[in-house]
Amino acid sequence: MNGSRASQGATIRFDRVTFAYTPGGRPAVSDLSLEIRPGESVVIVGPSGSGKSTVLKLLDALVLPQEGHVLVDGIDTRDQERLWDIRRRVGLIFQNPDNQLVSTTVEREIAFGMENLGLQRSEIARRIEEVTERLGLGKLLSRPPHKLSGGEKQRVAVAAVLAMRPACLALDEPTSLLDWQGRREIWSILRAVGDEPSRTVLHVTQFPDEVALGSRALVIAGGELVFDGTPTELFAGAGRAARWGLRSPATMTVAESLRGAGYSVPEGIPSLEDLVDAVARGAEGRAT
């Protein structure tokens, strides 16, 4: 398992970054500053068109800031000579896996990125075995990627990126085109990867229910950073998250109804299990 991990997570710094897709036009990201420490698992939320995805593009040097600097482990994304060092550190997963699957079999797909890193065949084979086991892709290895379900495709895309052992995994709405089954598969992977101290994770999403997958939440609205705190803090207090068009996670709304009925539900973003526990405890309370 050790082998599939980066030796150390990446440090990311945005220093007063402004970027507009058309020079002189409305900035997609405006005077944005933030620092992400190695191993942090960060979820970025915000309304559509808020600049969330642009942050990931800036991070991977797919676009360059017109003002300010983006630094990955201290390397400026504007330093064209070190582009390779940045791309090797940042593994990007897109919304639509069809946009990043290029090979004829799942096995070749996972190998593709590593071949481009110039890894030896034996090393490639070893890493394929590792990520295959880890993401449960064993049965799919010889299948053509285009014949897989959406969730399976996205798992293959994640596996191919993880096999390259990026210090930072950046995901742009990885579940938005998937059905529930597919989303659950990606969630369990994100939970596991997010817990690794050796990998920095940036996950852009529109789903409030996914905010709890990270330990830190950022809200970007109108190209600016408007919130930086824990997921629980984001949804605490009435109306704060709603101001940016973010609904509370469904389990929080249900928790509120249960409190109204006299059950004692802990604060924060509860899981379904937490809710059932609260109800069961309430029953015991009345029985004794």
């Binding site: 059905d179 529930w180 089954q181 989303r183 659950r184 469904a250 389990t251 709304t253 249900v254 379904l272 809710l275 059932v276 109800v279």
Partner: peptide, 10 residues
């Protein structure tokens, strides 16, 4: 493979 709303699941 369908996700029931939280209320029903609970």
């Amino acid at each position: 493979g369908l996700a029931p709303p939280v209320e029903y699941a609970l």
